[in-house]
């Protein structure tokens, strides 16, 4: 087995010298009630999985074998086989699950239940609900610290980032941010949490120890009225150097120097861009354009949109998985 793995990684290494390793991109289509499966080699949709109603949050679990999809209108999280695309089982999620984050332990899923002001903790192995944590009004964004000690949940009407201790399930800090916080993303070294505020039009950089906003990034696109700039999805490269921020109806993805917080580029993508997902080796980042029903493929190094892939209706979430 080890030999095969070695060979595989050697192959991957060789491949990456010439071209990136192959992977699969999964995109949840909120209105289409489907997940589009895209092959990285062809950048084309190879399969469309019919899922439950209103799929949004999407991630990969169980060492790449399971695809988790939050289907809000069915009040559950569905689990699919990443290879056969068959539905395996569903998880108890609490009502209207929208976004979730998988703990680094690979077993605990933290789910935001928008309608009930709760974060639900689910144990994947036992497929059972472990805990319900009361948070602010309309919880949505979910981030986890790299060491797994803290979850950050954002509540859209309370306008706070809630820091939750993953041992005690208690809230240990609340940080007020701008209007309608949608997404929380830790830097890989755990030094910062980035929280986007859709209506506030900003991204707050939070010190996760002091629970303080240390910096606020705002955006400006010539010719666009400020109200149209609505940050949602945030992804930061593992080396902590570059961040990508999806700006919603501004139809752009902002590229931010994650050390100086300066916005260095605005990349024109499709309409109403919400969520982002890196390829496994971070050479590409995928952006879901809800209104134009497509996914923009951005070359991370070149900072250029290199492809646009038509998917299902109202693409929402995106996750990638190495083949």
């Amino acid at each position: 087995m080890r030999a095969i793995l070695c060979a595989a990684s050697l192959l991957a290494l060789t491949a990456s010298a010439g071209q990136a390793m192959a992977y699969t991109i999964f995109v949840s289509n909120e209105k289409g009630n489907s997940v589009s499966v895209i092959d990285s080699e062809t950048m084309e949709v190879t399969d469309t999985i019919d899922v439950g109603q209103r799929p949004r949050g999407i991630t990969v679990a169980e060492e790449g074998t399971h695809l988790l999809v939050a289907v809000g209108d069915d009040d559950t999280v569905e689990v699919y086989d990443t290879k056969t695309h068959e539905r395996l089982y569903t998880l108890p999620s609490g009502p209207d699950p929208e976004l979730f984050v998988l703990h680094p332990d690979g077993n605990h899923l933290y789910i935001a239940n928008e309608d009930d002001n709760l974060v639900t903790v689910v144990d994947l192995k036992s497929r059972s609900m472990v805990s319900e944590i009361p948070v602010g009004v309309e919880p949505e964004g979910m981030g986890v610290s790299p060491d797994g000690k803290f979850i950050v949940n954002t509540s859209e009407t309370t306008n706070m980032a809630h820091f939750i201790d993953t041992e005690s399930h208690e809230i240990v800090g609340n940080v007020l941010v701008d209007q309608r916080p949608r997404f929380a993303e830790f830097k890989a070294d755990g030094s910062e949490v980035w929280v986007s505020s859709e209506i506030g039009g900003s991204v707050s950089i939070i010190d996760p120890i002091k629970h303080e906003v240390t910096h606020k990034i705002t955006f400006e696109v010539p010719g666009l009225r400020p109200e149209a700039i609505q940050p949602v999805g945030v992804r930061i490269t593992k080396d902590g150097s570059t961040a990508f921020v999806a700006l919603g109806p501004a139809n752009r993805v902002a590229v931010v120097d994650a050390a100086t917080y300066e916005v260095t580029d605005y990349l024109l993508v499709g309409q109403r861009v919400w969520q982002l997902g890196f390829s496994p080796d971070e050479d590409m980042i995928f952006a879901t354009n809800g209104v134009s029903n497509d996914v923009s493929v951005i070359d991370v190094a070149a900072r250029e949109v290199v492809n646009t892939i038509p998917v299902g209706e109202f693409p929402w979430g995106v996750v990638t998985l190495a083949d």
Binding site: P134, G136, V137, T157, N159, M160, H162, I171, N174
Partner: peptide, 10 residues
């Protein structure tokens, strides 16, 4: 109610 949910933190 919504204000009070936030009020728990403030």
């Amino acid at each position: 109610d919504d204000n009070n949910t936030t009020g728990r933190f403030t």
